[in-house]
Design a protein around this nucleic acid. Structure first.
Lengths: 345, 345
DNA sequence: ACGGACATCCAAACCGCTTTGGATTTCGTC
DNA sequence: GACGAAATCCAAAGCGGTTTGGATGTCCGT
């Protein structure tokens, strides 16, 4: 509990070799129980803790996982990312791993990965927010750096390990619920559709419509960063149009709040005059729970996804297997206060 | 650009010693320009990048900054933290530092700091969200680990380096604005008041009231995690009371959105029937800008604070000085659509 | 009494880089 | 042409761990 002794000093105090002390502390069998106890006690007394740099150098494992996030004010810099990180970080620390986060300029992302690999900064990385034309996985495969994708890479589902929720299915179910309630003019406020998750959600939406013989109306589909004003402005514009929607399907609670604001500003009532279903990532600062949640939603905890992604990645690192593994989470469809039958006006 | 050579191989290929190659690459003067060029070219060609663990071990500097955040679903796990991190992270990477984030169980926070110090995981840390009875700085001083506080530690302002915004002043000004508009029943929806920033905000609020001979009404002051429902529920309750407030002073945009929702649900109009001023941390996913911002607010970019905090810390690490430095940011008071004169009903 | 199987422990090499303390060359000066 | 300074470069010693390849001692069966 005092300052910092190193292995050498510790072993001298004990009249033992560094080898033995190291083994005793790391649980190797070739040390007598008595010696191990002595070592442990002295280590505790002197406040010994192995220098992590030295250990990493000696073992060749950096005991860290990297997350590189482009600095842009887009999707990734949002609370969903944070919640994922929180989940993953917890798993890391439980396994003795560090989490290192690199915030880089957008055009230096590739560099960042290269550095992680060549300078051995991390034993693996997580790919966030795969795009439709994703290529990071190619780079990582080439660099031989283990990785797990949060989301799915179109066309590379078989050759990569990933964890994702069933975006298409979730939005299909949500759309069906609205259709069942009698809504036929449904607007979709989607995330950026160059991202894979948003494309899948849109597909789910369109599939559901078409299955009932309805044609998606391009005027009712928007795609952007999921901010609050994005929800409000677009909803406002649509509501004021000639042929306004009676329901909104929204990709994020944050934008959904904006939509609700627009509805209010139009003098309408959410859940009565206009319905909203939103996807809910179960963010801790935006709770949508309680007896009857504010928003009807498709819910999937992104924090949980973070935990699982981390576990998957650590597994891959400690016991490399050839075949990729993946985990498909299902979103729950939860009825809240923001949906109701289409008003017949 | 190929696999990974190390310094030894590189130097052999060049018929130079490791010393010379190392010096050439690191910009030391005792290398001829010609040699330096040769080295640089070969390094580029072979794709040499120094192993960071080895370098850290040799230099004794870990080139990383630690952020330990308790796992709790409280204040810190919120988007404000993320935005701060984004700012800090950018500064770190610009200076070649890594950012390591430890998510720990609440009661392991101290352990986490001790580990960072004893195992040399980071060269410094940032203290987030100082509480009224803060003690982390004591530990860090004892551990001899450089740190910067985001916020201020009551009673330790002189002996610690920190960066903070003028919370008291900001809320005093906001309150004065409301008073000038004729509001006398003003509600305060504050953050958790065991945190220093929230206490200061409250003080600013109360000071302003008392300066005009008004007594703060305990019924109109709440303190909690700054979620959306927190804003809505409390506002709703107050608005339905016998003697409702005509204005709200809110500690976070997120809760302010909830307040606006409550106002709408009561059939009232924000900025007309009821005014709102909120603090705005300039979160990227909750923009409150435009010609006339939605919310009248006290604004201070927490991302900027992150950048500055990081710079301050790196300065302290590279050029240790005895006297602490600190930076006091002023929030802007920006008029938006959510305030208006007290309605005389 | 002897050889082998275990149980313990250790000296030294190694991980890949930085840095100390020279060694060697080059060059301007007197 | 000798000499000290300046310019270059290098061998080797760390940094603080882990791990290899024994060395030593103990116990047992025959």
């Amino acid at each position: 509990m005092s300052k910092g002794v190193n292995l050498k000093e510790l072993s001298q105090r004990l009249n033992l070799s560094q080898t033995t002390v190291s083994r005793a502390l790391n649980g190797y069998p070739e040390v007598s129980a008595e010696t191990r106890k002595r070592v442990a006690e002295m280590a505790e007394k002197l406040g010994y803790a192995p220098n992590s740099q030295a250990r990493r150098l000696a073992t060749g494992r950096s005991m860290a996982i990297g997350h590189v996030i482009p600095r842009s004010i887009h999707e990734m810099m949002n609370p969903i990312f944070l919640e994922f990180i929180a989940g993953a970080g917890e798993t890391y620390s439980r396994h003795g791993y560090d989490m290192i986060i690199s915030v880089v300029e957008d055009d230096h992302e590739e560099d960042a990965y290269r550095q992680i690999a060549s300078r051995k900064k991390a034993d693996g990385v997580i790919i966030h927010g795969p795009a439709n034309d994703e290529r990071r996985h190619k780079l990582l495969q080439e660099l031989n750096l283990p990785f797990v994708v949060h989301g799915r890479i179109p066309g590379a589902e078989e050759e990569t390990s990933w964890i994702d929720m069933n975006n298409r299915r979730a939005f299909e179910r949500a759309t069906n619920l609205l259709l069942d309630l009698g809504h036929t003019r449904i607007a979709l406020l989607n995330g950026l559709e160059h991202m894979d998750f948003a494309r899948r959600r849109r597909r789910g939406f369109e599939d559901a419509l078409q299955a009932r013989g309805l044609t998606p109306d391009a005027l009712l589909m928007r795609s952007s960063d999921m901010t609050e004003p994005y929800g409000c402005d677009n909803a406002m514009e649509m509501l004021k149009s000639d042929n306004p929607p009676t329901a909104f399907l929204v990709s994020s609670m944050i934008s959904a709040i904006g939509v609700a604001r627009a509805i209010g500003q139009c003098g309408l009532k959410t859940g009565k005059d206009v319905s909203i279903i939103t996807h809910d990532d179960a963010l801790s600062f935006l709770p949508n729970s309680g007896e009857v949640p504010i928003f009807t939603c498709t819910r999937s905890s992104v924090r949980y996804a973070g935990e699982k992604a981390a576990e998957l990645l650590l597994d891959m690192i400690t016991a490399p297997i050839s075949t990729p593994k993946s985990l498909h989470l299902d979103a729950e469809l939860i009825i809240g206060q923001s949906t109701g039958p289409a008003s017949s006006n």
